[in-house]
Computed example of a mutant assay.
Amino acid sequence: MSNFYNELPKITFQKFRLGVFLFTENEFIRTRVRKAVSILDNRVNTTPCNKRAFPQPKVEKKLYIVDPSIIREKEHDIECLLNSDKFSVLLYGGPAGDLVHAQSVRYVASNEVDSKELANIIADVVGIKHLNRAPKLSQREREILQYYGRGYTLKAIGYELGISPKSAETYKSRACRKLGLTGRAAVLNFIDPRLQKTSVIH
């Protein structure tokens, strides 16, 4: 069972803790789900109601993310999971077929859904209504990302904006943390091409 069963790190919200359990043997799906959980956790940490400001909640929710292709091979192991309304299941990966009618299935997503959208889906399925899907960047943070994504060094960014390289690093790190971005390539991929046509210096 350990070959296809994965328990991901819990996410603590203001009112409950969420445990995510993944059933798959597909490394691609496993990577995307782990990234989605990480994105969701980062979003929780950057909302005004930061989880660190509250005591650990006693209520626990569980979400089971199941790759439909695993069920044909391991049907006897997770049959009770699918046929009970006590569980919440999100089918993610290959074709779901008749599994969409299972009692516990709350949502079906194809493997074309990327980690960011999967994080949104997970939030919806477990009833997180107050969570910002797209964390708001300050004007300065957006300016920094524009420069950083286009290859400017932190020293050059500081010079352009009249701030110290250390301040530029602080803004850049904060913006990347809000958006779940790692590395210059990820920042470049995030930047809206329409924004690149406008001046970022004010």
Rank of each mutant, 00 (worst) to 15 (best):
D77V: 14
D77Q: 11
D77P: 00
I78P: 00
I78M: 03
E79M: 09
C80M: 09
L81N: 02
L82K: 06
S84L: 08
S84F: 09
D85R: 15
D85Y: 07
K86N: 08
L90C: 09
L90D: 04
Y92N: 00
G93T: 04
G94P: 01
G94A: 13
P95Y: 08
P95L: 13
P95W: 02
A96C: 11
A96Q: 10
G97L: 04
G97Y: 13
L99Q: 08
V100Y: 03
V100C: 01
V100L: 11
A102T: 01
A102Q: 13
A102L: 02
Q103T: 04
Y107N: 05
Y107V: 09
V108C: 14
V108Q: 04
A109M: 14
N111M: 09
N111W: 11
N111I: 05
E112D: 15
E112H: 11
E112Y: 12
V113N: 03
V113K: 02
V113R: 01
D114G: 06
D114H: 11
D114M: 12
S115R: 03
K116G: 03
E117F: 12
E117P: 02
E117W: 04
L118R: 05
N120H: 14
N120L: 04
I121S: 07
I121A: 06
A123L: 08
A123M: 13
A123F: 07
A123W: 01
D124M: 15
